[in-house]
């Protein structure tokens, strides 16, 4: 087994008594594509927010490359090598696609001269070369998601947290996105992916963690996860709960 790049022990977060994440452990091996799934409101985005430092931890510890993350502010965590692609695309609307990516490239690493290559590489990795000089404002959802990934990739991370990159995409776009994440991994980036589309997750991930109501309920290979009765219960329980609202 390769080295662990990110690990969490007893990770917990509560908002005014509401326990959003409870005692979650995880170990993400370097070079893998890891999955994080769970029903709506399970706490997936919150967990990512804890890793990027958007919220402080209530308890537990997250280590990245054997370094405790808690004292680092968000931008330092990025500079250390953790990037994040948001679920809701947040491009800078007035800037062009290339400029958007350049922002990522400039601050992830040292000098600007080196970063022009990074920008082009990021454009090529996600396949946005043709749209490079358009402003982000008028892009389609599919292109926006790619931009989101490209911009995060341009910060030259060693770990990319991708928050539902396939949500709302059609089957063709979903396949492109899966391809795009594979290419990101080929560049040596570990990917941790939150995804609803089970087909996408199982086709791409080496291992998957399942959380429900803030707790980890399963971890294993895609085949194991799909067959796990606890996972099936968590997912099948969901529509019934929804009907009750």
């Amino acid at each position: 087994m390769s080295q662990i790049i990110l690990s969490g022990r007893g990770v917990s977060k509560s908002f005014r008594g509401l326990k959003a994440i409870q005692d979650v452990d995880f170990d993400i091996p370097e070079g893998s594509i890891f999955g994080l799934i769970g029903p709506n409101g399970a706490g997936k985005s919150t967990l990512f927010n804890l890793i990027t430092g958007y919220y402080p931890l209530t308890a537990g510890e997250i280590r990245f490359k054997d370094q405790d993350l808690s004292p680092l502010p968000t931008y330092r965590r990025n500079q250390a090598g953790i990037a994040r692609a948001f679920q809701i695309s947040k491009p800078f609307p007035a800037l062009t696609v290339r400029e958007n990516i350049r922002v990522g490239a400039m601050f992830g690493d040292a000098s600007r001269a080196a970063s022009e290559d990074t920008v082009e590489q990021a454009l090529a990795t996600v396949g946005l070369q043709d749209l490079a000089d358009r402003t982000a404002e008028g892009l389609t959802v599919g292109a926006l998601r790619k931009l989101e990934v490209a911009r995060a990739f341009a910060t030259r991370p060693t770990l990319l947290l991708a928050d539902e990159p396939c949500a709302g995409l059609n089957p063709v776009e979903t396949r492109e996105m899966v391809e795009c994440l594979r290419k990101v991994r080929e560049h040596g980036v570990t990917v941790w992916l939150v995804e609803h589309d089970m087909k996408a997750v199982t086709s791409i991930c080496d291992r998957i963690i399942v959380i429900d109501a803030g707790k980890k309920i399963a971890e294993g290979s895609p085949q194991e996860i799909v067959a796990d009765p606890k996972v099936i219960a968590a997912y099948l329980g969901e529509p019934l709960e929804e009907a009750g609202h």
Binding site: T52, Y54, P73, T74, Y75, N78, Q79, A83, R84, F86, K90, F92, P93, A94, L95, E99, R102, V103, G104, M106, F107, G108, R151, A152, T155
Partner: peptide, 18 residues
Amino acid sequence: YALFAIREDEDTAMMLGV
């Protein structure tokens, strides 16, 4: 670029290492 990123979306800017 840092200032532009801050103007457009400060939280995202932070996430990009600004």
